[in-house]
């Protein structure tokens, strides 16, 4: 994902004269090419996230299109009030791009487990939030967000799923993207956890015409009516996110089901309001917290078993 972001950033800088990239002293080696090509558009403000957002807001207020880059928790939690008051309240074009979504940096410990960033930002009105699942989504989402008025957040992980080669012409904010079509169970996910969903689907060995797979690439804003119309088609919905369900994908889908009194049943896979006190690589931690493909596929099997 980061590679795609890097490429798109350089393309964008060529097109957008007012673009500026600010980093909070992170991205070693990531922006060498960018800095060399556009030295005046690049600024490392140091390890100071509050200042990073304040400065970005000031620059954006003066007409700059600002990209802010850091690790997910530092970019969202450390400077949350600056995001809310300085950038979002003034509707400024500050585009937060984080790396290390979910358990990407699993071995680095709790400080680096980004499992609440989506939820916390989701509770702020007037912000656009995206966590792409594939390289194509990353490319589309980044370009869309930068050209969206106001403050945006793009959560990246190290690796995108390339299990399904997929490209479309259009990418719409707030709508589901369909990757597999079925008629009974829909798996809806956000971010890189998509790869686990695909594996779970393959592993479950259920008739493929019964399971749909969607990503909700943009968590906010959502097209509620569009979501409702899709959710109502299925008897079962699984939501999967590498994030806390409170304020996350699980709670969004749950609230739509409740609001429209849909008959569909919901199972949420998330970090389940837990903080992991152990470390491990991303796959290990996903398994530990129950959002890995084996757990999901066993739940798929259970659902079909109970149906028969």
């Amino acid at each position: 994902m980061r590679e795609i972001f890097k490429e798109e950033l350089i393309k964008l800088a060529r097109k957008k004269k007012n673009l500026m990239l600010l980093t909070g002293d992170l991205g070693y080696g990531v922006f060498n090419k960018f800095e060399k090509k556009y030295p005046k558009k690049y600024l490392n403000v140091g390890v100071a996230e509050q200042n990073l957002i304040g400065i970005s807001s000031g620059l954006a207020k003066e007409g700059k299109c600002v990209i802010c880059y850091s690790i997910a928790n530092f970019l969202t939690l450390r400077c949350l009030e600056q995001i809310r008051n300085d950038s979002v309240y003034h509707n400024l074009n500050v585009n937060l791009v984080s790396t290390g979504g979910g358990f990407t940096y699993g071995v680095l410990g709790m400080s680096h487990h980004a499992t609440e960033d989506l939820s916390i930002l989701n509770s702020i009105p007037n912000i656009t939030i995206s966590a792409p699942s594939t390289n194509w989504e990353t490319k589309m989402s980044f370009n869309k967000l930068v050209n969206t008025k106001g403050t945006t957040y793009l959560r990246l992980e190290k690796n995108a799923s390339d299990l399904i080669p997929f490209e479309r012409k259009t990418y719409k904010i707030g709508k589901l993207i369909k990757y597999r079509k079925g008629d009974f169970l829909a798996i809806i996910c956000i971010g890189g956890i998509f790869s686990e969903c695909i594996r779970a689907y393959n592993n479950s060995k259920v008739n493929s015409s019964r399971i749909s797979i969607y990503t909700l690439s943009t968590l906010k804003p959502i097209d509620e009516i569009h979501l409702k119309n899709i959710l109502r088609k299925y008897k079962f919905i699984f939501t999967v996110e590498e994030n806390n369900y409170i304020g996350g994908l699980g709670s969004i889908i749950s609230s739509i089901i409740t609001k429209y009194s849909l008959k569909t049943r919901l199972k949420i896979f998330s970090t389940n309001d837990q903080t992991l006190k152990i470390v491990g690589d991303q796959n290990y931690l996903r398994k530990k917290i129950g959002i890995d493909y084996l757990t999901i596929s066993s739940e798929i099997k259970k659902v079909f078993k109970s149906e028969n």
Binding site: L59, N85, D86
Partner: peptide
Amino acid sequence: EFSTGSLGHGLSVSCGIALAN
């Protein structure tokens, strides 16, 4: 020019504005 209320925000924003100008 800018809304504040929580302390410690203004100077960073001012830095951004000053840099742009």
